[in-house]
Computed example of a mutant assay.
Amino acid sequence: MEVGMLLPALSFFRLNHSKNGQSEHRAKVMAKGLPEKKPLPGVKSIILVASGKGGVGKTTTAVNLACAMKVIEPDKEIGLLDADVFGPSVPLMMNINGEPMLNDDNLIEPLLNYGVKCMSMGLLVASEAVVWRGLMVMQALDRLTRHVAWGPLDCLVVDTPPGTGDTHLSLAQNLPIDGALVVTTPQSAALQVTKRGVNMFEKLKVPIIGMVENMSYAICTECGKRNYVFGKETKQAAEQMGLEIIESFEVDQNMSDCINSGKPAIYALPDSIHAEKYRQLANKIFKYIANKDDKAEATKN
């Protein structure tokens, strides 16, 4: 049936839907309740890396965070899930390719590079664009989470798509999320959308660990002066949202080279200021997880 033929019928339905009928329908939906949160087998902690706006360096943050966590705690098992079904970038940044294999339990074996277990929709579909409706996206997300042999993992870092869509809702409602990192840049446009993302996590009762600011400033190669090319609004916006800026990164051409080469800065530029800041960020995430675990244990006792 053509869309034009369908619209009049839909309009008629809405106009003739009584308020009582709406209330009854809403009550039935709410009565069903939210899905029960079930942990991923063998996964101790789950950290989301999110952004309201695209192009702010969210995936770069997720990739380097996961790698830095593995570098500073080599005995810890770290995973990285690329939950951006429509625009997966983790395969490029982590230099992973090839179709994953199924194990004896019919679970997908994540690919391993830099000591980090990785999974992405970019590894499961061909290079052409993914054109799916919401239900198919949710099914794909379920496959990337519950049909992957993640365990044992001490922490799974999840790179979420930009915005406030079905992916975030599904993850928050189905998985026990330990916390979320919000990534932004100093532009007003990015910060305004970030506020929507923070509001979403608050409604979903997902703890926000803090804010990561990318492209904070650029350093002049001639005089070393800091140029705040995108403004200085991040600090004020973070205060308004009640968040702490737990790490801030300046613009660096070398970071683009790392992305294109598939070698994260933590390995390609281990002595750089960026690598040091990613190690600091990883330490803060480990400390956050440990404190959360301690509070949970204290509550039990």
Rank of each mutant, 00 (worst) to 15 (best):
Gly4Gln: 15
Gly4Cys: 09
Gly4Arg: 14
Leu7Ser: 06
Pro8Glu: 10
His17Asn: 06
Ser18Tyr: 10
Asn20Leu: 14
Gly21Met: 09
Gly21Val: 06
His25Lys: 13
Ala27Thr: 14
Lys28Asp: 04
Ala31Ile: 09
Lys32Ile: 00
Pro35Ile: 11
Lys37Arg: 15
Lys38Val: 09
Val43Trp: 06
Ser45Ala: 14
Ile46Met: 09
Ile47Glu: 08
Ser51Tyr: 07
Thr61Gln: 01
Val63Cys: 10
Asn64Pro: 01
Leu65Thr: 11
Leu65Pro: 13
Ala68Cys: 10
Lys70Asn: 01
Lys70Val: 10
Lys70Cys: 09
Ile72Ala: 09
Glu73His: 13
Lys76Pro: 00
Ile78Asp: 04
Leu80His: 09
Asp82Gln: 07
Val85Trp: 12
Gly87Ala: 09
Ser89Leu: 07
Val90Lys: 08
Gly98Glu: 02
Glu99Pro: 00
Glu99Ala: 00
Leu102Pro: 07
Asn106Thr: 13
Asn106Met: 15
Ile108Tyr: 05
Asn113Asp: 13
Asn113Glu: 04
Asn113Gln: 11
Tyr114Phe: 10
Gly115Ser: 03
Gly115Arg: 01
Val116Lys: 04
Val116Gly: 13
Lys117Tyr: 02
Met119Asp: 08
Ser120Ile: 05
Leu123Trp: 07
Ser127Ala: 08
Ala129Lys: 08
Val131Arg: 10
Leu135Arg: 00
Leu135Gly: 00
Leu135Ile: 06
Met136His: 02
Met136Tyr: 03
Thr145Asn: 05
His147Thr: 06
Ala149Thr: 04
Trp150Arg: 04
Trp150Phe: 04
Pro152His: 01
Leu153Asn: 01
Asp154Asn: 07
Cys155His: 08
Leu156Tyr: 13
Val157Ile: 15
Val157Asn: 11
Pro162Val: 09
His168Asp: 00
His168Cys: 08
Ala172Val: 01
Asp178Glu: 11
Gly179Trp: 01
Leu181His: 10
Thr184Val: 08
Gln187Pro: 08
Leu191Asn: 11
Gln192Val: 06
Gly197Trp: 04
Val198Met: 06
Val198Phe: 03
Asn199Thr: 14
Asn199Ser: 15
Lys205Trp: 03
Lys205Phe: 01
Val206Cys: 01
Ile208Gln: 10
Ile208Cys: 09
Ile208His: 02
Ile209Arg: 12
Met211Phe: 13
Met211Gly: 14
Met215Ser: 03
Ser216Val: 11
Ala218Leu: 14
Gly224Asp: 05
Gly224Asn: 12
Tyr228Cys: 03
Tyr228Val: 03
Tyr228Ala: 15
Val229Phe: 15
Val229Thr: 14
Thr234Ile: 05
Lys235Thr: 12
Ala237Trp: 11
Met241Asp: 00
Leu243Trp: 11
Glu244Leu: 08
Ile245Glu: 13
Phe249Leu: 13
Asp252His: 05
Met255Val: 12
Ser256Asn: 12
Cys258Ser: 07
Ile259Val: 06
Ile259Pro: 00
Gly262Ile: 04
Ala265Leu: 07
Ala265Met: 02
Ile266Thr: 01
Ile266Ala: 11
Ala268Cys: 04
Leu269Phe: 14
Pro270Ser: 13
Asp271His: 10
Asp271Leu: 15
Asp271Cys: 11
Ile273Thr: 14
His274Gly: 15
Lys277Phe: 02
Arg279Val: 14
Arg279Cys: 14
Gln280Leu: 14
Gln280Pro: 12
Leu281Pro: 12
Ala282Val: 11
Ile285Ser: 03
Lys292Tyr: 06
Asp294Ile: 11
Thr299His: 12
